[in-house]
Design a protein around this nucleic acid. Structure first.
Lengths: 252, 252
DNA sequence: TGTACATCAGTGAACGCGCGTTCACTGATGTAC
DNA sequence: TGTACATCAGTGAACGCGCGTTCACTGATGTAC
């Protein structure tokens, strides 16, 4: 009877997954604002009302998709970062950045869902904040490790003035705890830069500006690593690049 | 008869303006995806069909709003930048950045319309590219002026490797013509950083991260000015700050 | 193992809604003589 | 200045559409004895 009960429950879980998968496909094709319960049901050959057995409302489905997107991105970044030697801070930093961009290029609408303009009429519930911070935490840990092991040189960085240091206290006291204020500020700047670069590339703002997005992004990653005080290797390629399936190939 | 004809035409122009104004108000309240011709007509006490005397379709109205938004932002930035001494590159840079952020905070949905995730199902026509480049051109001119007058010091910047330099050729050969490659790259990084910071602030990504957005943004502006090689004044305040109506007041 | 009952996934019709767009019309404004 | 005609802004009804959500229902799956 345990097995029997699990059968029904397993079917239920599977169906919920299929609904989310179909919704995700719709998201990829038409964007978040156009996500429709009826269209999802149609794609699965269900009555539109059937979806309500699994999700209380369209908003709840959206919330699930947002959580899944954060988790998918977080997982991709963690997988890429994990493979590198803990001592190789530059490699870890680069791998994470490339993983973020790679994931974003593969899942543009999901990226837009979580890092683009907010979906009108939708308010993200508390449940999204955990998954939302996975990438941020990952990047933060690299900086923390660098500080703890004395690898991060702050030379050349002026001490932050008091106002700026105070302004970033929330993050400085959570995931960047123990990191000196100037480095917290540098970390934030680097973080904004990476996501700014990915967003602008994805949203088309770099058309007619940058012709080789791969090369430009690599430059940005290296420049930000330098800004953080990481030791940046000379050569154009390094361990940790091209984490998984990549976009355009670059010359050997 | 010229006067008479102009009367009808003047009314027509006025009405078109009123429609755009109403649409803009809707945009500000509900976002671009929810913009509805019928709602606009309703607000003006018109039959929904009347709007078609002025705009061929919803998309055409959207296009106009996008152009207007770019122009409004461009105008705000130009007005702020214009007031400063041509020699004061840091002041001009800062004023432009603050103007962008100030405008974005005042017009969040219009900012999202032009710098957020693309509106699903809408393709921006050619007519938008001119207005779209006003701010970019403004920032580019500051860099060009700095180069021409020898004010921009590149000291401490490593020469860009060839791939990265080639990657940014499109912008390097247009609005940044005559600027050395390393500075072109630095300019792009600074540009991405500023818009990344504004976007993340607006889209709520800095909640629980930064507590004093004004102070943090000021830091970002100064850091990017330094990255560009601009001479950054010591004091926390400087000419060119708080260009017009600002957000939160800061301590005197 | 067999029967009686409870659970619950999925149905299909219906609700009320707002949307973009078209079209034949009316009446006021503008033009030509 | 006055009349006959042309232009065109705005009307209101209608088109066909898709949406989110509710509800009473059916039948298959699971449970207890």
């Amino acid at each position: 009877m345990v097995a029997a009960r699990t059968l029904r429950e397993r079917l239920r879980t599977e169906m919920a997954h299929e609904i989310k998968a179909a919704a995700s496909r719709q998201l990829a094709e038409y964007g978040a604002a156009a996500l429709s319960l009826r269209a999802v049901a149609r794609e699965l050959g269900l009555a539109s009302s059937a979806v309500y057995r699994y999700f209380k409302s369209r908003d709840e489905l959206l919330t699930q998709l947002i959580i899944d997107a954060y988790d998918s991105l977080g997982q991709a970044a963690e997988d890429a970062e994990e493979r590198l030697d803990r001592q190789d801070l530059f490699g870890r930093w680069s791998a994470t950045c490339y993983a973020v961009r790679g994931w974003a290029l593969e899942h543009p609408h999901e990226y837009a869902l979580i890092y683009g303009s907010p979906v009108p009429g939708y308010r993200a519930p508390q449940a999204t904040v955990g998954p939302a911070s996975r990438v941020t935490s990952l990047l933060a840990r690299i900086v923390q490790d660098g500080v703890r092991e004395g690898q991060l040189s702050l030379s050349g960085q002026s001490p932050a003035d008091a106002r700026a240091a105070a302004a970033v206290a929330p993050i400085g006291q959570s995931v960047l705890f123990g990191v000196p204020a100037p480095l917290v500020l540098a970390g934030l700047i680097a973080w904004l830069e990476i996501f700014g670069a990915v967003s602008f590339e994805l949203f088309g703002q770099l058309n007619n500006v940058v012709s080789d997005q791969d090369a430009f992004f690599e430059h940005v990653v290296r420049a930000m690593a330098a800004l953080l005080g990481l030791e940046v290797p000379r050569g154009p390629r390094s361990a940790g690049r091209r984490p998984s399936r990549g976009g355009a190939r670059t010359r050997a």
